[in-house]
Design a protein around this nucleic acid. Sequence first.
RNA 1: GCGCCCUUAGCUCAGUUGGAUAGAGCGUCUGGCUACGAACCAGAAGGUCGGGAGUUCGAAUCUCUCAGGGCGCACCA
Length: 677
Amino acid sequence: MYRHLERRLAHHILESLRRRHPGIALPNVVIEQPPKVELGDFAIPTFPFAKPLRSAPLKIAEAIRADAGSIEGIAEMQVAPPGYLNVKIDRAWMAAALAADQKPPTEVPPGKILVEHSSINPNKAAHIGHLRNAILGDTFVRLLRYAGREVDIQNYIDNTGVQVADVVVGFTHIEKKSRAEIEALTRQPRFDYYCWDLYARVSQWYEQDKQNLQVRLQTLHAIEDAFSETAGVAELISTAVLRRHLETMDRLDIEYDFLPRESEILHLHFWDAAFTKLKEAGVLTFENEGKNKGCWVMRRAGTGKESSESSVVQQTLESRPIQEVFKEYEKISEEDQKVIVRSNNTVGYVGKDIAYHMWKFGLLGRDFAYRKFYRYPNQHDCWISATEGEKDHPHFGDVAEIYNVIDARQSEAQNTVIEALRGLGHDEAADNYTHFSYEMVALTPRCAAELGYTLSEEDKARSYIEVSGRKGFGVKADDLLDTLIASAKKEVDSRHPQLTDDERLTIATQIAIGALRYFMLKYTKQSVIAFDFKDALSFEGETGPYAQYAVVRATSIFKKAALDPDTFCRDVASNISPADLSKYLASETANEIWELWLTASKTRYVVDQCIATTEPAYLAKHAFQLAQLFNTFYHRYPILTEPDEKRKQFLLATAAIVRRELIRTLAVMGITVPPVM
RNA sequence: GCGCCCUUAGCUCAGUUGGAUAGAGCGUCUGGCUACGAACCAGAAGGUCGGGAGUUCGAAUCUCUCAGGGCGCACCA
């Protein structure tokens, strides 16, 4: 409703200016927030209009005000020096709309969206870096769904790469385990932890003797042959670890719809189909000389295509033979080449990714086979790719837009895939391809020391240290969750000894997840998170539990009043007359409470902003702001002891609406609220 | 060397398309619980927004430049 009103206002102002000054090109109407609520709810700077209209900002503001007439939902406009038009919302009107939970009609763009996130190598336990990815991705999915979009969630599984090969080497060459022994191990709890340690040992083993790297190459090669014994072992291990990843993420209420695997991209010959098209379109060129001799290469993204393009134009104008110019244009300098097909005819990661993304947009002409892989406790099925699958399955792929939640280090590879699509003539697909890029999670030197790693003097001076799966250096996702739950449990135990242990554990788990998810969302994507247990385990201040606590407080008011907060909330619109809303919100002293209503009305506005900027952190800020305003309100206005019955109803309504919006906001972040805490 | 990102309070970070007195959390200090639960609230101290130049009525925000830091730039994924 807030967003709706803002748009209506912008439109109205622009129209009125156009009427007054026909034929003059006008800049966009900027609408922002005045620094204080007393001044108004929207502020329109009129400076940008001064030049085109040849008039003073204050005069323009005055003219707009005079022309405005009445706008539904707007109470009044005031001109403020040096050149603002401050607009006040009709508080009772807005509050009534919010109380009735009115949602203005919005047009949902057509087409399905595919969000790819997590994509953890299935060779070891998930760590905090993977948590950031999954939480960002899952929250973005929830944002899109809140906005009414249809979304498929995919988790790409690289089950034939070096990382899986390394663990296979560990089992078969270092531990010399038989297939049966490995199979028995996969049934042990937290098999992924076992692999975590083994993976680190394999890396050491390679370092001990470079000859050992030969084993890796052989293993890698053997895995690609679907019928080999090694491929069977790799499949066994990667599937078991994958299952563990799904379990870990399910603890955070993160689910997937489909798990496309690299093995199927290989075995179903996705690449062959893509390769043909890429050659035809001239995206790939064959190198006859230089260091990439015998390879099929393409131009690396962002490597000066524009300059060569303009030089082509230049040279064409000089009327050189077109073939010669074309040849020069095609020629990519060695350092700008990205090898897609190696000289031994095997295809690299980027090539497979191009094929996979053609499939995503329905441009490949091939499809996976599907079978059910994992059923969540809520009965939702997660499907996995297969060479031969089940007859009935959901339709995946062939979508209108995609978002790939992948860390910033891979942006060049991502852009190369986008350029490949563009080179194939699929500009629309390329435009609808978003690399949802975020920075990594590192450890503070203190945290690293706590984990028992000895640091160099250089490392100690850094503000953060990168985690390394290869060194087994990092914080495992399940360990962090366990620590968080134990820490929350201790608090809950002391606060609610009357509850059963099960109840306390459930509450502690909700708090732990709230803390973790909020922690991962409060930082903007481009900020490297320097992880520290002290910050992550905090339940005070700008944290998830702070926001959860605000809801619990609101709930407890209704409990004490013997009211059901949800039904009360539903009936608010009919229980309180617009006259009363107006009376209690319009007075000069009501600014504080109005600010609470106003903020509560912005949930959808913030959601749209998060989607448009692919930045979920704004939602975390919104939740915190709402909780903070509510806590102040809670402290300042005792509700149950309010003698004026009508005012009491109004205060209860305020609590009910804020509670509703806060619960919704937290839900989009994947955070639930316990009944008590 | 080329490309992308970052530099805001003691620490960790916000600051939407340039707009009114640059904000929050933590930490420090001072207060507030016989309660709609203090996982909270009120208050104080703390900033030449890395340096410099430019564009603009107006710059933390845009441009250039310098300094410092991070990450990419494999016939790895």
